[in-house]
């Protein structure tokens, strides 16, 4: 479903992604781990269409379609969803307005009928309840003054409302308390479906014991340097990333 081949991206002339290859099939959950600054968020943002990063080489196909040619809004229409590591605060725009505008925009893109205010309210109320969110957050401006955990839960709310084909969660677990982590994981698991895939960026095993990945990849200095099954995450948790530096130091000496 998603194929990333030899993807290179740079910002201000500095290369951050240096040849990424990754194939995610329908229904799979892939986890991406790696040290701070290795390029995980950059990869996530490039997939969502952030133009701050210039793609210099490679291709990204979603169901055979060249994603890199599409504007961010068209990618969302095609089913790409990114839960941001740092969700943006948008003063003056209510959360429920934003959610409905987003839902109707992707529905229009997919040739589906728009949802009216009444139906939308019913729909979103149910999802808010399932995520055990404070319904008051719907009336407030998008993410403004939300606590760290509330922001992350709000990203998941958007995900369950938009029902993407490919959901990319960028450190959605950081900032969540133990109960919230379980609730968010349940939200993700409820969406697991043979036609839907997930890329879960995380630093910790915690989330992965709830949302069990099919594959785990280690990103280091803009490349996938190791891939494995879910046990790789446990290994990393135990040993950290020091071995990577040693390996690369050796490679550099050789």
């Amino acid at each position: 479903m998603l194929e990333i081949r030899n993807l290179h991206a740079e910002v201000n002339g500095v290369e951050i992604l240096r040849g990424i290859d990754l194939v995610v099939k329908s229904g799979e959950v892939h986890s991406i781990m790696g040290p701070n600054g290795s390029g995980k968020s950059t990869l996530a943002q490039v997939l969502a269409g952030r133009t701050t990063y210039a793609v210099t080489q490679g291709e990204v196909l979603l169901d055979g379609k060249n994603l890199l040619e599409l504007e961010p809004e068209a990618r969302a229409g095609e089913g790409v969803f990114l839960a941001f590591q740092y969700p943006v605060e948008i003063p003056g725009v209510s959360n429920s307005y934003f959610l409905r505008a987003a839902l109707n925009a992707v529905r229009r893109y997919r040739g589906e009928e728009e949802v009216d205010a009444v139906d939308f309210l019913a729909l979103v109320r149910a999802k808010v309840a399932a995520l055990e969110m404070d319904p008051g957050l719907l009336k407030r401006p998008v993410n403004e003054g939300f606590s760290g955990g509330e922001k992350k839960r709000n990203e998941i709310l958007q995900m369950v409302v938009l029902e993407p084909r490919l959901a990319i969660l960028d450190e959605t677990d950081s900032g969540l308390d133990i109960d919230a982590l379980r609730i968010v994981a349940n939200g993700v698991n409820a969406l697991r479906d043979p036609r839907r895939s997930f890329i879960v960026v995380t630093h910790y095993q915690r989330l992965l014991s709830h949302v069990v990945p099919d594959f785990v990849h280690v990103l280091y200095a803009g490349r996938v340097v190791k891939s494995g099954g879910k046990e790789l995450a446990l290994e990393l948790e135990e040993h950290g990333y020091g071995w990577l530096d040693q390996q690369f130091a050796q490679a550099a000496r050789a």
Binding site: A48, G49, R50, T51, T52, E71, P72, E73, R75, A76, G77, F81, L82, F84, P87, V88, I90, F98, A101, A102, A105, V106, Y109, Q158, L162
Partner: peptide, 15 residues
């Protein structure tokens, strides 16, 4: 704010 514009667009909202 460019980041806000991108946030909205990433949810399917046109530029």
């Amino acid at each position: 704010d460019e980041e806000s514009v991108f946030y909205l667009c990433s949810r399917g909202i046109s530029l």
